[in-house]
């Protein structure tokens, strides 16, 4: 069993490939997390406008992309659009899919944060002479982001994990590289190694989150 799943010789052989994959996973995360956050912030800010012509389409948009499994969205962009003459390439497809999917999730989190800030805060800020926009940026948003920090972090953890989907459209991130190495060596050690790398990378975040969440739920008892 050690020979099969933790083969040192094969690990040594596959290590550079896996390391390259880790680098790409980190780069990809650095790209898609801000993309999703930006999309989410846009949605959350739009939802502060009370106009029903904006509000309802916005809810529909968010629910649409929350109901759509991200892999389905990715495959649709990657394998469907070329039939319409639109060859976007794996990288762009991943970017768009993450913008739409994780943007919807970040948007929900940020909206809840903004709604948690008491209306009196806005009124007080406005009464000091701040404009609507200034009150939003300097008074509401800092408190909103702070209130939903655990949810933002938890969402970000999911986004980083989700980058493994990019392997399906042949982007050479961690999982893809590990599978390449596995098919070259006929041995599952590279996949085990990739799993260990994921775990070591994300374990600190999970620990932190579990503490924050316990505190949040326990506080309601």
């Amino acid at each position: 069993m050690i020979e099969t799943f933790f083969n040192i010789g094969i690990l040594a052989q596959a290590w550079p490939i896996i390391l390259a994959g880790l680098g790409n996973t980190l780069l990809l995360s650095l790209l898609v997390v801000p993309l999703g956050l930006g999309g989410g912030m846009l949605l959350a800010l739009l939802s502060t406008l009370r106009n029903p012509w904006i509000r309802w389409p916005l809810i529909a948009w968010v629910d649409f992309f929350r109901a759509f499994p991200p892999l389905v969205l990715l495959i649709f962009l990657y394998a469907g659009l070329p039939f319409a003459g639109l060859e976007l390439g794996g990288f762009t497809c991943v970017g768009i899919a993450f913008f739409l999917n994780t943007g919807a999730y970040y948007g929900e989190v940020l909206r809840a944060g903004i709604e948690s800030v008491a209306q009196g805060q806005v009124e007080a800020a406005r009464s000091t002479g701040l404009s609507r926009g200034q009150a939003l940026v300097w008074v509401v948003l800092p408190q909103a982001v702070r209130a939903v920090m655990p949810d933002l972090l938890s969402n970000t953890l999911e986004v980083v994990k989700l980058t493994s989907l990019a392997s399906v459209v042949a982007l050479p991130e961690l999982l893809f590289q590990a599978r390449q190495a596995q098919s070259l060596t006929y041995n599952p050690t590279p996949i085990v190694a990739a799993a260990v790398v994921y775990f070591l990378l994300l374990w600190p975040v999970v620990r932190l989150l579990s503490r924050l969440e316990n505190r949040a739920i326990a506080g309601r008892g």
Binding site: L157, K161, S164, L165, Y198, L202, S210
Partner: peptide
């Protein structure tokens, strides 16, 4: 919680 489902 840390491992991506696809990896598992």
């Amino acid at each position: 919680r840390a491992l991506p489902p696809l990896v598992i």
